[in-house]
Amino acid sequence: MGKAILVVLDGLSYQVAEHALGHLQAYCVAGRGALYRLECELPALSRPLYECILTGVTPIDSGVVHNDVVRLSTERSIFHYARDAGLSTAAAAYHWVSELYNRAPFLAARDRHSETPELPIQHGHFYYEDHYPDSHLFADAESLRLRFSPDFLLVHPMNIDDAGHKHGLDSSQYRNAARRADILLADHLQRWLDDGYQVMVTADHGMNNDRSHNGLLPEEREVPLFVLGLAFSLDPGARPKQTELCGTLCELLGVAHDKPLCQDLLK
């Protein structure tokens, strides 16, 4: 069985990811990573697309159709498959992820720091303010990784999305938030790879100049997928879908699942 880290850079449009993430692009230029363009499912909203990424189920089928659907998921997620296979799971993520897979509604005093081996996300640090610093979030994630050596780790920062809602797609604040996330990734990425993790870096949705997202514009729907690690084919012809990320991650972990996957991403 393998190990995998999924990084979801919330709200990052492909058109900004393509030019602003210099460290990740360096791996691609060196032939040690690849960048793909994904089209997010509809609606282009966060909670529905967390569910889509982590379960492979579209929002209209999952029933998580907007951000105010506060309940546990009724689908099986990567966390469920990994836990049931005897693997360990962890997440440093926005509190909506906790509400989908651990407990709903989120109660900060109970759920912010979670050590619950029986739940799908066994080790968790969950935040509930959109301006929670990405630097703290990456430190939270690395703390979980160093303490528990999880087989699957979700890393989910929010500052790119927060900057987009405050300033819009075509703003220095939005672009610089993406650049800062790239620098934070640079602190950890090679160490993760050296420790045997396969790494996927993507986004739930993009952003528009109205400082929102929920429509059909390319800048709202097109998001990046970077893949890094020895298990990936780096095939430039691969055409992964957002609904295939869950199954592909399950394949990387070596756990049984019944989700769609993009076989072309893998060796």
Rank of each mutant, 00 (worst) to 15 (best):
Q190N: 14
H156I: 11
C40E: 09
Q263N: 10
H125F: 14
E142G: 02
W96T: 07
A238P: 09
S13L: 15
A108S: 06
S62Y: 00
H165T: 03
E41T: 15
G2I: 04
S46P: 11
H66R: 13
R103M: 00
N209Y: 12
L230G: 14
C246N: 11
F148T: 02
L225V: 04
T202M: 05
A178K: 10
E99S: 07
K241H: 13
S98M: 02
L24D: 08
P133H: 14
E41D: 12
R180I: 12
P133F: 13
T202F: 05
T55R: 01
W96L: 14
R211K: 12
N214M: 14
R239L: 10
P43Q: 09
P120K: 00
G124Q: 01
G215S: 10
H131E: 08
F148L: 03
G22D: 14
M207C: 10
C40M: 08
K267N: 02
L49G: 03
H213Y: 07
R211V: 01
F148D: 09
E118D: 11
V69E: 08
F106N: 07
N67I: 02
V69W: 05
F138W: 11
D170H: 07
R145H: 07
A26I: 00
P120Y: 00
G56F: 00
C28Y: 02
L119A: 10
A85N: 00
L137H: 15
H123N: 13
Y128V: 06
E41Y: 06
P105F: 07
Y27Q: 15
S212T: 07
G63K: 08
R112C: 12
S77Q: 07
D235S: 14
E118H: 08
K166F: 01
R211Q: 06
G215P: 03
R71F: 00
P260R: 12
L216M: 15
D161T: 04
H188K: 11
Q25F: 08
R32T: 02
M1N: 09
Q242M: 14
D264I: 03
G164S: 01
G124F: 01
H123M: 08
D130L: 13
L144Q: 01
S171C: 01
Y94F: 12
F138M: 13
L137M: 15
P218R: 03
L38H: 13
D210F: 12
A139S: 11
S212M: 09
I53C: 03
E99T: 01
Q190W: 04
H213G: 05
A141Y: 05
E244K: 04
L261G: 13
G206V: 04
D258A: 06
D68Q: 07
V201N: 04
F79E: 02
E222G: 05
A4I: 06
D170S: 10
R103I: 00
V255D: 04
L184Q: 06
A92G: 05
Q242I: 04
L184R: 07
G229P: 12
V8K: 04
V65L: 15
L154C: 06
V199W: 05
Y50K: 08
E222N: 10
P120C: 00
G196K: 11
V199F: 07
M200Q: 08
V227E: 03
F152M: 04
S143Q: 13
R71L: 00
P117S: 04
W192I: 08
S114N: 01
